[in-house]
C-alpha cells in the first residue's frame, strides 16, 4: 500500500517536471496578472498570435508591472523570458540600464500614442490615464481634484504598492507631479484615505468590485468595462482638475528573446490591428496603434483629462528609489 503510493508520487513527480521542460518554437512572455486573466487580453492574444506564427505562446505572470522588473533582477539575467510585456514609460530608462533588454529593431511608425514614440528598445501597446474610480452607490460627492480627494473623508480607497505595481507607481508620481517637495505631506493625507495597499492592480480592483472598498486607483477607461460588459453606470472615474497622470504601457525583447525570431514577430504583431483590436475591451486601455474598427461609443462617455501629466523616463529613473523610500517611510508610520 505504502509502496504503491510511493510509486504514484514518483510518477506524478516525473509528470510534473517534464511539463516544465520547454518545447521548441515557444515564445515566453512575462506579463502582469490581469493581462493573463480569463477576461484579460491574454487568451485572445495567444489565439491570434498562434494562428499566424505556428508556435506556442506561453505567458508567465507576476503581480504587476514593477514586479516584472524586480523579477528580472532576481533572476539576474538568467531568465526564461523572450518578451517582457507590461512595463511603462516610468520604468523604461531603468529597465534599459539593467542590460537585460535588446533593441526591438522593428518600425514603430504605426504607433499613435500622445507625444509620439521614438524609443529603440520598447514598443508601446496601449496607454491610459490613472484615475480614482468610485462606486456611485457609496460615494455621493465624488472628489473633483486630487486636493479634494486627499482632504476628503468619504469612503476608503484601495491603492497599489509602487514597489510592485505600475498604477501604484503612477499614483505616487501623480502626487509628486502636483505637490513636488510637499509630497510627503500629501502622502500623509493619502494614508488616512487608504483601506489597504495591494501588490497588484487586479487584487485592488477585485476588492473594489466585491464591495470591500468604495474607491480604487485605476484608469479613466475602467468604467467602460462596467458600461459595456455589465451595462452599468454604477462605477465612475473622478475627474481631477489638476490633470491625470498618463501611462504608456510597453513591451520589449530580452537579450535571450533577441535570439528568438518569434520575439520580433510578436512585437510587430503587437502594433497591428489584430492585437490592438483586442486591447480596448479586454485590457480596458486606449489602443497605441490603429484598430480595424472604431472604439465602442462608451469610450466617448469617459472622463477626458484636461491635462496629461507625465515625467520623462530619465527623470523617474533618477529619482524612483528615493521617492519610493520617501513614500514608504510615510506610509509605514
Amino acid at each position: 500500500m505504502r509502496r504503491t503510493s510511493l510509486i504514484l508520487f514518483t510518477a506524478l513527480a516525473c509528470a510534473g517536471f517534464s511539463q516544465a521542460a520547454a518545447a521548441e518554437g515557444t515564445l515566453t512572455v512575462y506579463t502582469y496578472e490581469s493581462f493573463t486573466a480569463d477576461w484579460g487580453p491574454g487568451p485572445q492574444v495567444e489565439k491570434a498570435f498562434e494562428a499566424q506564427c505556428d508556435c506556442d505562446l506561453k505567458f508567465v505572470s507576476v503581480a504587476d508591472g514593477v514586479a516584472l522588473l524586480n523579477r528580472l533582477r532576481l533572476e539576474g539575467g538568467n531568465t526564461d523570458a523572450d518578451i517582457v510585456l507590461g512595463l511603462d514609460t516610468n520604468l523604461t530608462a531603468e529597465a534599459k540600464k539593467t542590460g537585460f533588454f535588446a533593441p526591438h529593431g522593428i518600425s514603430t511608425d504605426k504607433v499613435t500614442v500622445p507625444g509620439g514614440w521614438s524609443d529603440d528598445t520598447f514598443v508601446p501597446f496601449d496607454y491610459g490615464y490613472f484615475a480614482v474610480v468610485y462606486d456611485t452607490k457609496a460615494i455621493v460627492n465624488p472628489p473633483k481634484s486630487m486636493h479634494d480627494f486627499l482632504k476628503g473623508r468619504e469612503g476608503k480607497i484601495v491603492i497599489e504598492d509602487p514597489r510592485t505595481s505600475t498604477p501604484g507607481l503612477g499614483l505616487m508620481l501623480w502626487i509628486r507631479k502636483i505637490y513636488g517637495d510637499l509630497s510627503p505631506e500629501a502622502y500623509e493625507e493619502l494614508k488616512q484615505r487608504v483601506l489597504t495597499v495591494t501588490p497588484g492592480w487586479s487584487e485592488a480592483y477585485g476588492l473594489f468590485t466585491s464591495g470591500e472598498a468604495h474607491m480604487v486607483l485605476s484608469y479613466t477607461t475602467s468604467p467602460a468595462y462596467h458600461m459595456i460588459a455589465e451595462d452599468s453606470d454604477r462605477y465612475q472615474a473622478a475627474s481631477f482638475s489638476e490633470g491625470h497622470y498618463m501611462q504608456i504601457e510597453v513591451a520589449g525583447q530580452t537579450r535571450k528573446g533577441a535570439q528568438n525570431p518569434l520575439a520580433a514577430q510578436f512585437l510587430a504583431f503587437m502594433t497591428s490591428p489584430a492585437f490592438q483590436d483586442i486591447i480596448p475591451e479586454t485590457n480596458w486601455m486606449l489602443p497605441a496603434a490603429p484598430t480595424s474598427k472604431p472604439l465602442d461609443p462608451a469610450f466617448g462617455k469617459l472622463v477626458q483629462p484636461t491635462k496629461a501629466l507625465i515625467y520623462t523616463p530619465e527623470e523617474v529613473a533618477e529619482h524612483r528609489e528615493d521617492w519610493v523610500k520617501q513614500w514608504l517611510s510615510v506610509m509605514s508610520k
Binding site: A67, N70, L74, D161, R163, T164, K191, V194, L195, T196, V197, T198, P199, V324, L328, M331, S332, K333
Partner: peptide
C-alpha cells in the same frame, strides 16, 4: 494591508522581491 503593518519576516520578503 500594506506598509503600515509589516513584520520583519514580511519586510525581508519585500526587501528581496519588491525592492
Amino acid at each position: 494591508g500594506g506598509p503600515r503593518a509589516t513584520t520583519l519576516e514580511v519586510a525581508i520578503y519585500q526587501a528581496l522581491t519588491f525592492d
